[in-house]
């Protein structure tokens, strides 16, 4: 009886430790899921979270695309013309994403650039989106 109770006790403790491990796994998985669920761009402005090199590259890409559309519409709205618009957007798109990310996070650009060049990621489609939205809004708001 004693032996049985001892073995049952040890079995219970093993079960407990197993359940603790599985609970820890579950919480890890939950945390990972939560991290994935929170928006990437939201994490860029949250210094308490971490950005992997892939996240940083994806964030730089999407910041440039949004910037392209927004700046294009604003330039069209204020009826800005000439190459000043193109050059100012180019400078902004080149510098803003990396500057924004380095304000909120400590980024190792050498490590990130092993995956892809963060300085130019998405620059070409962003330029196209910028010229497109600028042309369309300029045409619509033309006096």
């Amino acid at each position: 009886m004693v032996l049985r109770s001892r073995s049952s006790k040890s079995a219970k403790t093993q079960v407990k430790s197993n359940s603790k491990e599985s609970n820890a796994d579950k919480t890890d998985q939950q945390q990972q899921l939560q991290q994935k669920a929170t928006y990437l761009l939201q994490r860029v402005f949250d210094s308490t979270t971490t950005l992997t090199p892939e996240d940083a590259i994806a964030a730089a890409h999407w910041i440039r695309q949004i910037l392209g559309i927004v700046v294009g519409i604003v330039y069209g709205l204020i009826q800005l013309t000439g190459f000043t618009g193109i050059m100012s957007f180019f400078t902004l798109a080149l510098m803003l994403p990396t500057t924004l990310m380095s304000i909120f996070h400590e980024l190792d650009f050498d490590e990130i650039n092993k995956h892809n060049n963060i300085q130019t990621e998405g620059l070409f489609p962003a330029m196209a989106l910028f010229v497109l939205s600028w042309t369309l809004s300029y045409t619509v708001f033309l006096r």
């Binding site: 695309q65 392209g68 070409f124 489609p125 962003a126 196209a128 989106l129 010229v131 497109l132 042309t135």
Partner: peptide, 13 residues
């Protein structure tokens, strides 16, 4: 021109 910009900007995104 608009078609090309769409191809570069929208189709790739």
């Amino acid at each position: 021109f608009i078609y090309t910009l769409c191809t570069m900007g929208i189709k790739s995104n």
